[in-house]
Design a protein around this nucleic acid. Structure first.
Length: 288
DNA sequence: CTTCTTGTTACTGA
DNA sequence: ATCAGTAACAAGAA
């Protein structure tokens, strides 16, 4: 499930690979994923910058248009250069002494293929076809962007800002953390991890939180997201970065997917409940 | 076979 | 009008 750290990893990697490369061919294999605009119209254009807003990837086109990509749950943006095009369709290549495995693309989930002048390609894959591509004008891009809340890793996201935002809200803390229009980029995995690190139950009413707990939640949002970006995100099932490789943050997960197992902090058994319609894991003993 | 998985939106009922 | 809860979307795992 790509959340902020996974999308940011893809953004950073793609920036180094596809910027300014001329788009020479676009193949749309699954029409429904391109929701606004025609991807084929990008031929001759190139991406001059890649931005991110929450979980949305924004590719800025030289022509002044914008290509928005949302990966939803199972979307992937995978880049392969010419060396991955092996006659006969082998999926392995030898890099010095180490053998690396490559996703053989396109596969049955490939929705769109962008081909660049240097024969490298960018594949948009999505098993469940919930993800989308929109090619929009500057005005439409601004309108879509404006619906997102603050970027949690931005310096403007201060303790005071978080406190004021929380004060205005009701409901429970996990539901709040998942609201993209308040804070952009947190999904089910990181919401649970933040609550665990802050020692707060995900179903705690926002209004009942003590000052010190709010401070801990704020600090946990910053530290967990930063650490997850550093480790290139979390691969639990389908997520792959733009090299087709898994994220390394799984080994740092302390709650997600650990129901029935022992809490790393107190040894208590992790309990699973439903909050905000999502599977939610927490420690009954040390999350208050 | 059923149930569960998740990001987002649309819908429903309060 | 606002908010919370839920279905829908798709495809696969258990």
């Amino acid at each position: 499930m790509p959340e902020l750290p996974e999308v940011e990893t893809i953004r950073q990697d793609l920036r180094r690979r596809i910027l300014s490369k001329k788009i020479v061919q676009v193949d749309v294999l699954r029409k429904k994923v391109v929701q606004i605009g025609r991807a084929e119209n990008l031929i001759g254009d190139n991406f001059k910058e890649i931005e991110r807003r929450g979980k949305l990837i924004i590719l800025v086109l030289r022509s002044g248009r914008y290509m928005l990509v949302h990966l939803k749950m199972t979307g992937q943006l995978i880049y392969q250069d010419e060396s991955c095009l092996v006659a006969g369709g082998h999926s392995m290549r030898v890099d010095g002494n180490s053998e690396k495995e490559f996703v053989k693309l396109p596969n049955k989930y490939t929705a769109v293929i962008f081909s660049f002048a240097d024969k490298s390609r960018l594949f948009f894959n999505d098993m469940r076809q919930f993800g989308y591509i929109k090619i929009v004008s500057k005005e439409e891009k601004k309108k879509i962007e404006s619906k997102y809340g603050i970027e949690p890793l931005d310096t403007k996201f201060t303790q005071k800002y978080f406190y004021e935002l929380l004060k205005k809200s009701g409901g429970n803390i996990k539901t709040f953390l998942l609201k993209q229009e308040k804070i952009a980029g947190i999904g089910n995995i990181y919401a649970d991890e933040v609550c665990f690190q802050a020692c707060v139950r995900p179903d705690r009413k926002v209004g009942d939180l003590k000052r010190q707990e709010i401070v801990k939640i704020y600090q946990s949002i910053k530290s967990i997201l930063k650490l997850a970006v550093k480790h290139r995100g979390t691969t639990f099932s389908d997520y792959l970065d733009s090299d087709g490789k898994k994220g390394n943050f799984v080994k740092y997960l302390k709650v997600y997917g650990r129901e029935g197992e022992k809490c790393y902090r107190c040894g208590g058994v992790m309990r699973k409940i439903r909050v905000a319609g999502r599977g939610t894991v927490f420690c009954l003993w040390c999350q208050k």
